[in-house]
Write a protein that binds this DNA or RNA. Structure first.
Lengths: 154, 154
DNA sequence: TATTGTTATACTCTATAACTATA
DNA sequence: TATAGTTATAGAGTATAACAATA
């Protein structure tokens, strides 16, 4: 604990990063007619292809009820449809519309652009230093969350 | 744009950091009987001392109506009280209860502990490298948000 | 019996607009 | 006339519990 203030200041900067990054992404999602939660669902759908709501609930770590609401919203705004599941008449397959697929790919492209904006002009040394530290922080944080999950099993 | 994939991977890690940090902080807030938004208000109150709701609305960048709701919640759960403003009978001074002040200080202490957890065991070199990169990223992001704010003036 | 998704209900955060009391 | 805060209203995200249809 040699420089507690510097550590606290660094955390403040990380928290500013969190806030600003959220603000930036939310702004561009709003332009596309999406909310953060709905965009997460779109993202999951992009990576998994047509999925049951149950699968999406697990992917997003939210309740089945919540997925019903998110899909309702995305259906109303024309991003996805509910298609019958071929083998299971209880289930539906949430599927992109043409527009939904187009917007999802745009989200992906926007993500890459953001990465270039943030890191593209950094020197290799600077970038490497940042990534190394980031890795350490993430490892510590993952371990902490895991330990905490052990203590209070869901 | 020499290593676009590495940049995208780094952004993925930053986003994981955002998610994990939120999860970790929310967990400990829940233990204290607080939500994220209410904790932000507590934080503002800790730094400003007894404040009018108007001042809190500006500090938190939310609507006056929203502050009414947040303060309602914090009053119900015993963290703050509404005291009459000495000079202006329209206004109230949102003020910590003893318990509220205690919890707010615990939040502050928890923040410092988190900083130590994340950075305390990093080598000086590693820490310096991370902070340098973080500074660059923040500068870029601030500039971007400002430019965006220019384009669509609120 | 177990699973998928919906209805019913409730709480939190957020916003705008109209209104009350005071300045 | 302007300001501080509340009421009225609305929409989004979140949860649990009860239920229908299907497996």
């Amino acid at each position: 604990m040699r420089h507690p203030t510097r550590h606290a200041d660094a955390l403040d900067q990380v928290l500013e990063l969190v806030v600003s990054l959220n603000a930036d992404m939310e702004q561009s999602l709003t332009r596309d007619g999406l909310t953060t939660s709905r965009a997460h669902l779109m993202w999951a759908l992009l990576h998994r292809g047509p999925s049951t709501q149950r699968a999406l609930a697990e992917a997003l770590q939210v309740s089945a009820r919540n997925v019903t609401g998110l899909v309702d919203g995305l259906v109303d705004t024309g991003f996805v449809t509910r298609e019958p599941h071929p083998d299971d008449r209880r289930a539906t397959l949430v599927t992109f519309t043409r527009r939904g697929a187009r917007v999802a790919k745009r989200l992906q492209a926007g993500q890459r652009q953001l990465a270039e904006l943030l890191f593209g002009r950094m020197s290799d040394r600077r970038f490497a230093g940042f990534v190394a530290g980031l890795g350490d922080v993430l490892t510590t944080l993952r371990r902490e969350l895991e330990a905490d999950a052990q203590k209070r099993p869901s």
